[in-house]
């Protein structure tokens, strides 16, 4: 099986607090993988270790290894800046740069990598990214308006356009719909099905119906109590996991008996 991401005995810490314990799993390229589990189970933390955004928080550290397309992102001498160019991220709250126009938001990441960008190239990147994010027809005639003038759902799709404008291999989504209304959520879910053709998508979600609708594989995490680390309980094809979970904890969580 080809592997886009291989996580091996990964532990994540915030200072002395052990947040994620010994996770190993493999993610296939051009698939959607959902991380589900109760609050505090470490699923977002795990997601943030995949593009080295975890270590941005003071005192946060990681042990173990994460291979993206065979390369260890925690290898010695690996620049986190280059990792984040290959592994893009969309956050829980839409976060377009408030002072930038829609167009400049899309180009923000591209301009970091390529100082000289001709007008034609810039326009084609903007159109391609906004089309992929399903936003082009809505904003094509107001690209110079501030990104903050869009609705929440549009802002989130703008953030997706911004993330894919730099053509990463992997797209991480940290509860991308939890701040959105059902219609905007639907728009993003439909969009993800298309993104799967090009990118390896990993999504953290609290919404189990969403995980069931969009993901190919699901990883279920849980915690055994407060101040305990989160751990991986079960990982497998989504359909099988939601119909016949192997673990009682997974069955209880999916059935809504806790979490």
């Amino acid at each position: 099986m080809p592997k886009a991401i291989e996580i091996a005995s990964l532990n994540a810490y915030y200072g002395s607090f052990h947040a994620v314990a010994d996770v190993s799993l493999t993610i296939a390229p051009r698939s959607i993988t959902a991380f589900i589990g109760p609050s505090g189970c470490g699923k977002s933390t795990l997601l943030r270790t995949l593009n080295r955004m975890h270590e941005v928080i003071p005192g946060a550290r990681v042990t173990g290894s994460v291979l993206v397309e065979g390369q260890d992102v925690y290898g010695s001498g690996v620049d986190p800046v280059l990792v984040r160019q290959r592994v893009g991220m969309v956050f829980q709250r839409p976060n377009p740069f408030p002072t930038m126009s829609i167009k400049d938001n899309v180009l923000a990441g591209v301009r970091l990598q390529r100082r000289r960008l001709s007008k034609g190239e810039a326009n084609s990147v903007v159109e391609r990214s906004l089309r992929s994010a399903g936003l082009w027809t809505e904003v094509r005639d107001r690209l110079d308006k501030p990104g903050a003038s869009l609705s929440g759902g549009q802002q989130q799709r703008l953030c997706i356009a911004r993330a894919i404008a730099i053509e990463p291999e992997v797209l991480l989504m940290d509860e991308p719909c939890s701040a959105l209304d059902p219609i905007s959520t639907l728009a993003i879910e439909e969009l993800m099905a298309g993104l799967k053709a090009t990118y390896t998508v990993v999504i953290v979600t609290h919404n189990m119906a969403q995980a069931a609708r969009i993901s190919d594989k699901t990883a279920f995490f849980t915690i055994d109590g407060a101040r305990k680390p989160g751990r991986l309980v079960e990982y497998g094809p989504t359909a099988a996991m939601f119909s016949e979970p192997n673990q009682q904890a997974t069955a209880d969580y999916i059935a809504g008996r806790f979490g």
Binding site: N51, V56, V81, Q85, G88, P96, F97, A108, G109, A163
Partner: peptide
């Protein structure tokens, strides 16, 4: 976070 996640130094 948005800037860092885009690969900004």
């Amino acid at each position: 976070e948005a800037a860092l996640a885009l690969g900004a130094t």
